[in-house]
Design a binder for these strands. Structure first.
Lengths: 139, 139
DNA sequence: GATATAATTGAAAATGATTTTCAATAGAAG
DNA sequence: CTTCTATTGAAAATCATTTTCAATTATATC
């Protein structure tokens, strides 16, 4: 998976630097939305010379290549998750932050219709569920 | 409508100041999500002594009383709209920003089920549609 | 491998939005 | 009208993010 991301960077003319690899390593396999600072802290374990600025710049490129996506929440809109394949939506646990994707193909038509009923040509949507994950539910 | 909001403020022990009335007047009837600065600029037409800080403080209280809600978009997450009655979702025109609410009662069950399929107890959701409004469509 | 060159880096400064501080002001109640 | 306290606007502080810039380093070429 890391390889795929590195390949994407290379294919688009970006260099494979230590800073970028450290950032990717942290976020590529995360089930939790991470802020730039959280990525910074975690990635410094592997590459202590890393600067926070490079985290911002790397996240920007990964988002541009659609390898990650920004996650919006009440508590802030500056956290990132790996982007899912195809068209998927998020469920996020409000206790521990565990994130999980689900398919939502069947919703598209519904949204198009609802929009049309109100005079809008629907071109996109945001859907995100909040709840409690199985593990947090037990406690 | 303005009266209802003022009543809500009074009922909760807040004073009815000129600053607050100016802010309310601007946002209460808006079909467009407004940033604190946009509210500030518009409200100063009515009450020139208004400070930006008071706009922030008033928006905070209106949100707390659930009279307005924050709107998240790619271009920023600091704009506000009047809150709709009951459980409604938003459609926003990507060209002019015109916002419109629609009912979404029938979606609740679906979301609960999708969550359960992934081991989550769903407690809330965000749904927002993006598109082009009828007027912008013509151009 | 050594070299050239342009992208990338980290640190520091700048920016922009938001929050806090504080003395002055003005609602609300008596 | 007076008292009391919430609220105000201005200025300063804060926080996340972006820009600037000289030094570094990945990559292509020799």
């Amino acid at each position: 998976m890391v390889e795929k991301w590195l390949e994407q960077l290379r294919k688009n003319g970006y260099r494979l630097t230590e800073a970028r690899q450290a950032v990717i390593q942290v976020i590529v396999k995360s089930n939790y939305a991470l802020t730039p600072f959280q990525v910074y802290e975690a990635a410094r374990a592997q590459y202590p010379a890393l600067g926070l600025v490079s985290v911002y710049r790397t996240l920007e490129k990964l988002e541009e290549l659609k390898l990650i996506r920004r996650v919006h929440q009440d508590c802030g809109c500056n956290a990132y998750l790996p982007q899912a394949e195809g068209h998927q939506h998020l469920i996020i646990c409000q206790k521990c932050g565990l994130a999980c994707y689900f398919e939502g193909d069947d919703l598209e038509d519904l949204f198009t219709k609802v929009g049309a009923d109100h005079g809008y040509e629907v071109t996109g949507h945001w859907l995100q569920l909040f709840g409690t994950c199985a593990e947090c539910e037990q406690k």
